[in-house]
Simulated scan of single mutants.
Amino acid sequence: MRYVEKAKKIAKKKGIAFTHISTELGKSRGYLSEMLANGRDLPEHMLADVASLLGVAVDDLRGDSENEKKPTAQGDGRRERLSKLSYEDLLLLQEDVISELRKRGQK
């Protein structure tokens, strides 16, 4: 999840208007909403200001929660193992995963 998406979620939960956060940052009222709509994200240097306006820690925007910090036992090293596969092997794996997902979707 992007920082701006987390900020939106927190703002909504706390009843803080996203337009208010935008203007307090010295930006246009639609600045953050445009980021959401256009697939952009908050730059790192703005996280502290946004977090402060939302009354949360920067880690809350970064997603450094206990649940996200702890990898699952099954997920340990998965990305590293995938990075060692050839392009062709990744394509084959992708086909297998898609096939399995289709099977499970039909049950």
Score class of each variant (00 low, 15 high):
M1Q: 11
M1A: 07
R2M: 11
R2I: 05
Y3D: 01
E5I: 00
K6V: 05
A7K: 04
A7G: 08
I10T: 03
I10C: 08
A11T: 07
A11L: 03
K12Y: 03
G15V: 12
G15W: 05
F18A: 07
F18Q: 15
T19L: 00
T19I: 00
T19H: 02
H20S: 03
H20L: 02
H20D: 02
S22M: 05
K27W: 08
K27M: 04
S28G: 10
S28L: 04
Y31V: 00
L32I: 04
L32W: 03
G39K: 12
D41E: 10
L42C: 03
L42G: 02
L42T: 02
P43G: 05
E44K: 09
H45K: 13
H45E: 12
A48Y: 15
A48E: 15
V50Y: 01
V50L: 07
A51H: 12
S52N: 14
S52V: 00
L53A: 03
L54Y: 11
G55S: 06
G55M: 04
A57P: 06
A57Q: 13
A57H: 14
V58N: 09
D59W: 14
L61S: 09
R62L: 09
R62P: 01
R62W: 00
D64I: 08
D64K: 08
S65R: 15
S65P: 02
S65N: 13
K69Q: 08
K69P: 01
K70D: 02
P71Q: 08
G75Q: 07
G75T: 05
G75K: 05
G77H: 06
G77Q: 08
R78F: 14
R79E: 06
E80W: 09
R81I: 03
S83I: 00
S83G: 05
K84E: 05
Y87Q: 09
E88I: 05
E88Y: 04
E88M: 04
E88G: 04
D89F: 09
L91V: 10
L93I: 09
L93Y: 09
Q94F: 12
Q94Y: 14
E95Y: 11
V97L: 14
V97C: 10
S99Q: 07
E100L: 15
L101N: 14
R102E: 13
R102Y: 10
R102G: 10
K103H: 09
K103E: 11
R104V: 11
R104K: 14
R104D: 07
R104A: 12
